[in-house]
Amino acid sequence: MRRLSAHERALWARVAASVKPLPGREMPKLPAAPAPVATAEPPPAAKTPPSPSRRPPAAPAAKAKAPHPLGATLDGSWDRQIARGRLAPDRVVDLHGHTLATAHGVLASAILAGDGARVILVITGKGRPDRPARIRDELMHWLDRPDLRPHVASLRGAHPRHGGGGAFYIILRRGK
């Protein structure tokens, strides 16, 4: 069990002072502050380098990468419509019963149709423990491919009215 820091102890004291114990109960005592432990530091020259197992992990190098378009933030009106279940899809693509190859082809043709549809509801299914949702798992990879990525503005989970966890809204970019 770890000990409370000075800040946490002060915070707990404020909280404990603001409550009234139940009838017949006593106010719990605040744990005693740990006594400062005096340690003798060896001189700086005598310090040994930390063993390899105790070295902190190196921080990963930050990559200057453009934000992923599928996680792009839409303006608030889109998110409000989705949350309230008021978003009306222009096209529904049901991928139940398809193989991975045919599902990818159906999805790509729906996105590349160019008929002015802005919102596509893609129903992938949730899967079951004995039958995982492979199409659902592959959806992000398919949308991230170079042939489809320029057409997709965002991907959002569907409202329960449209399938919830087994369906997604693909918001397409406006035609130029």
Rank of each mutant, 00 (worst) to 15 (best):
L30M: 15
A16T: 00
P34L: 06
A33E: 04
P44E: 03
A40H: 09
A45D: 05
A33Y: 01
S53W: 09
R14D: 03
A61D: 08
A62E: 12
A66S: 10
E26V: 03
P49W: 05
S51W: 06
S53D: 14
A35K: 15
A32M: 11
P67W: 10
A32G: 12
A64L: 05
R55V: 06
T48K: 14
P52I: 04
P34G: 09
A38N: 07
P49V: 06
P60N: 03
A58S: 12
K65L: 13
P36Q: 13
A59Q: 13
T39H: 13
P34C: 00
A64F: 04
S53L: 11
V19Y: 01
A38P: 02
A45Q: 14
P50I: 05
A62H: 06
P56K: 00
P50T: 06
V15D: 03
P50N: 08
H68Y: 13
P28Y: 04
A40P: 00
L22P: 01
A32N: 04
A59T: 07
A64D: 05
P21Y: 00
R25T: 02
V37L: 14
A45V: 10
T48D: 08
A62M: 04
A45M: 10
L30R: 05
P67C: 14
P57W: 06
R14E: 02
V19E: 02
G24R: 02
R54G: 04
A33P: 00
P52F: 03
L30N: 11
T48S: 15
K20S: 10
A61E: 12
R55E: 06
R54D: 11
P57C: 10
R55N: 03
K65H: 11
V19N: 02
P23G: 01
A16H: 06
P23N: 05
K47D: 09
P50A: 07
L30E: 14
P42L: 13
H68L: 11
P21N: 04
T39G: 10
A40Q: 13
A66D: 14
R14W: 04
K29R: 15
S51A: 11
A61S: 11
P28T: 11
K29E: 06
L22Q: 09
L30S: 13
K20Q: 09
P50Q: 03
A40S: 07
G24Q: 00
A62T: 10
R54T: 04
P42C: 09
S18P: 00
P44T: 13
K63C: 13
A45P: 01
V19T: 07
E41I: 13
K47I: 08
H68F: 08
A17H: 05
A61Q: 03
S53N: 10
A59C: 12
A62C: 12
R25G: 04
A32C: 02
